[in-house]
Amino acid sequence: MMIDPLSVFLLLLGASTPILFAALGELVVERAGVLNLGVEGMMITGALAGFGAAYSTGNPFLGFLVAACAGAAISMLFAALTQVFLANQVASGLALTLFGLGLAAMLGKPFEGVRAPSMPAGPLRINWIVWLGLVMVPLVWWFLNRTRSGLILRAVGENHEAAHALGYNIRLTRLAAIAFGGAMAGVGGAFISIATVLQWTEGMTAGAGWIALAIVVFSNWTAPGVLAGAWLFGGVTVLQLRLQAAGVAVPVQLLSMAPYLATIIVLVAISARQKFSRRAGTGAPGSLGTNFHALR
């Protein structure tokens, strides 16, 4: 049975948007040398705050703005723990996820059972936020690779001792990166509650934050790689559902497994390249996940 590739592509755009936003945000955070495992917690916070604002004001776009602010605000909790009190980043990130899920569940009680206003379709009948996500990819790439601030951010992530010696403010750079990551995760989460489901339900992000983390690794820490990863993860999901809908007997488990398999293959390829070539092949920032404490 034939299925229309264009229809799959259109479905893919919607399906990959939440993870694209979250992964782009996490990309910037990790390039600044911080590993924030709290993406899921920030996404659910954004999903609730965005939904609440969109429902209360009747304006979905305002909802996304509020979601970005809420995501950034809750990420500051992680920032305070890891950048000020120098707590372990892995533990703090996990705590942020658990805290965000619980907090959103508690604060979300008044919003159960009501629905968000419908969103007006953007150009080509594709959601405005989908377009925004696509625009953010070259923007993040440009920022990281073609601006002075991006260079400083990468320097901080590669070797915070050296960046510190050069006089850059490690803590401030990382705070900004974490806030950006939080805002992006917030918008990604809000896309699920405002554009996809139109209702608030506890735990509605259902693990999207963890997929975003996997995509950053898959991308080898580059913005175009993040887009490819988001499309691969989103695309495989959409494709298997689309094939099922068309009545094609597909081994569902195999297709569901595919993105994770691809991540493993990419990781192996990266480390193989690292082993057999002279230059350091992996794109992982040198100071990723380590805290910085200025002794001098």
């Binding site: 479905l11 489901v197 259902a206 559902l241």
Partner: peptide
């Protein structure tokens, strides 16, 4: 229960 996947 997986809202995003159900939507897709």
């Amino acid at each position: 229960f997986d809202p995003a996947k159900e939507a897709e």
